[in-house]
Simulated scan of single mutants.
Amino acid sequence: MFSLKEIASVTLILFAVIDIIGSIPIIIDLRKREGKIESEKATIVSGVLMVAFLFLGQSILKLFGLDFQSFAMAGAIIIFLIGLEMILGTTFFHSDPESKTGSIVPLAFPLIVGAGTMTTLLSLRAAYSLPNVLVGIVLNLVFVYIVLKASSWLERKLGQGGADVLRKVFGVILLAIAIKLFKTNL
């Protein structure tokens, strides 16, 4: 039932898609604007969204008359664009910088749990056993919580260069995942 290989794969895939390390500059800006980040609240809301979509995503697709392959193809394109953003340093997806809703929007949604994460969860559910996907989600939420709590410390330690290198490495991983999803669901 539990497989360390599957758990590791799921965890790394979600880690690359969520890209909490690459989001540190956004988290730091949000903390400066809002005064603080509610790490617990953002982590719990993110977890609820991920688990809910993991279990209800297929039903939501059926409600709209969509099949998994179509959603996975659309998700592959989104993941591909996110990977390009990370590698090229451009922005395709814009959020409202004046939003004052703090730890829920834009942090929990769509920064941590966005379209790429949702699509990836459906793909992971199809490819891996459910308990391994759930463990991968929990491991990522623990890491997200740690990063949110330590964002100011990470800002000092990583520096801009370190964050840029991590962002580009995970961008390449996302491009590879997107291409695999596209090939599989074509």
Rank of each mutant, 00 (worst) to 15 (best):
F2R: 09
K5F: 11
A16K: 01
I18Y: 08
D19Q: 02
G22D: 05
P25N: 04
I27V: 11
I28L: 11
K36I: 06
S39F: 12
K41V: 04
V45P: 11
S46E: 04
V48K: 01
V51I: 14
V51K: 05
F53W: 07
L54F: 04
L54E: 05
S59P: 12
L61S: 06
L61E: 02
F64R: 01
D67E: 10
F68A: 13
A72W: 04
M73N: 15
I77Y: 13
G83Q: 04
I87K: 05
L88G: 12
G89L: 00
F92H: 09
F93L: 11
S95K: 15
S95G: 12
E98F: 08
E98V: 05
T101A: 15
T101H: 13
P106A: 00
L107I: 06
L111K: 05
T117Q: 08
L124S: 04
A127P: 15
V135K: 07
I137L: 04
L139M: 07
L139V: 05
N140I: 00
N140H: 02
N140T: 01
L141F: 06
V144T: 03
Y145Q: 09
Y145R: 13
V147W: 06
S151R: 13
R156C: 12
G159Q: 04
G161S: 12
G162V: 01
G162P: 09
R167C: 09
R167K: 15
R167D: 11
V169Y: 06
V169K: 02
F170R: 07
L174F: 02
L175F: 02
I177R: 03
I179F: 15
L181D: 07
K183T: 13
